[in-house]
Every structure is written in C-alpha cells, then in structure tokens.
Amino acid sequence: MSSIISIQNLRKAYPGGFEALKGVNLEIAQGEILALLGPNGAGKTTLISTVCGITVPTAGTITVGGFDTMTDYRATRDLIGLVPQEINLEPFETVFNSVSFSRGLFGKPRNDAYINRILDQLSLGDKKDSKIMALSGGMKRRVLIAKALSHEPRVLFLDEPTAGVDVELRKDMWDIVAGLKADGVTIILTTHYIEEAEAIADRVGVINGGEILLVQDKSELMAQMGQKQLQIAIKDPVTEIPDTLSAYALARSEDGMHLTYTYDTTGERTGITTLLNDLAAAGLVMTDLQTRQSSLEDIFVGLVKETT
C-alpha cells in the first residue's frame, strides 16, 4: 500500500515533563479510513495536532504526501483538513464567511460555487447567511467540517466528530465520511465510541498512554482476536453440568436453561460437532442454538486493560 502519511518515532513531551506521545510509528494508506481508538488522555489529539502543525514534536518525523511537516509545512498543511474536537468558531461571523475565510487562509482563490456546494452537502445551504452563534451544536459541528473541507484537502482529520452528538446526526456524520472516502479523501478519525470505528473504519488503531498498541484491518482484527460464543438453550434446566462435558468449560446460566460455549473461530477445530454429540449423549434436549461474535469493544477493553 502507498502511505499518504508516515509517522516515525514521534515523541512529544510537554514542558513539565508529561510525555503525551512515546515513540509513535504509524503508516496511513491513501484513501483509507483509519479510526484511532483510545481512552481520554491517550494521546489522540496530540497526535493529530502534531501532524497538522499545531503542536511541535519533540522528536521524530512526519511526512504527508511525501513532504516533511516541519521543513515543507506549506505542502503538508495544504493537503490536510482538520476538524477539531472543540467547537471553535467565531460566533459573530456568518456560516458562509467563516467557511470562505478558511479557504483563503489555506491559500486558495475565492470560489463561492465550491463553498456553496460543500454547504449544501452538509445540509447547511439554508443556514449560510446565519450567524454561527444562532446555530445548534450539531450545525456548528457541520460548519467545522465545511471549514476543514473548504480548501479541498486530500487528508481529513476528524477529532472525535461525534462526541456529544445525537444518534441521528452521528449517522449523518458517518454518511458524510463515507461520501468523502468515495471522493478519495483519506480520513483519520479519533473516537472513543467503538461502534463508530466498527461502522465506518477500514483499519483500527488503538492508542493508550502515548503509544500505538495495535493497528490492524478492522475485519482481520475482529476475526483474529474475536472469539465466538455458542449459546445453547435446553429444554429442562440443569443444576450442574454433567462430568462428561467438563472438557468444554461450559458456562451455565443462573436459571439452568442456557449453556454457553466459547470457541476460537480461527482454531483448526471448533469442537462444536463433538460438543453437540456429547450434549445429546448426556441426555440434554436442545431447544435453540445461537452464536455471538465478540465486538471491537471487547477487544479494545481487553487491550487497554492489559497495558494499564
């Protein structure tokens, strides 16, 4: 894969000694959606800020589109759009002027048609002459996205785009991201909502304590680390699991009506066939079977726990 962003040994120590990034290495492929998952204070925002030029790295190099962010900052920043976590907007400015200002700041000639198109795409068309202070929180977030897109960036950073956003708007946001991906924009978003990463990301990176713990294809990650559970509903409740089934390490539900078997989907044998045979042999009558794949959330919680 060809990387559009390449981060090597990136370190950031703040005055006072706090080390927000402890040697981050990360390659981001052209056109992908990468979700960076991590708890509060993991270093997500610092990582983004450093790539965008808001924060100066203590050590390490970052290239965007092959340009170094320190020496070729004009070229790299030209490629990047940033949607910050906080709603940072000038309240007295109109939506259109605010977005047009961003375009000019990034060195692009005025293009009202383009700005209008972005505003329409983000359902802000009828609000373009409204003052920002008159908008709802969700609308303001859209304005931030419009500002980030105003200079036609090839890479878009979304720092917790759906924090504090209602369900409907979150779905809208996901649609917007999908649309941008279709246009070939590389998207890096941070989130602590696992379902967000699960819903839209191609790859998932987990960051905690200033270190990248893992970066992997979302489906691969879930397949590799995902365990499956088989839930067996039985006709007559059991008070204890028969000795003949002890090898399967079954979990019994409180009412004795369900047994749960955990297995690895990537293993050579799942043991399901023999389990079912043995269950029948033990005289248990099965009424239902159900399987459940562990979610990204389980994986994430497991990883973060391991490192703390």
């Binding site: 030029g53 900052y73 920043r77 910050p84 709603i87 940072n88 000038e90 990034f106 500002k147």
Partner: peptide, 15 residues
Amino acid sequence: PKFTGTIYELLSAPV
C-alpha cells in the same frame, strides 16, 4: 481567535 479557539486554524494553515 485565541479566545474563541479559532487560532487552531491559523496554526494549521500553510502560512
């Protein structure tokens, strides 16, 4: 811009 937070834009722009 420092007060409203919009300074982020100035710092991340190619200027």
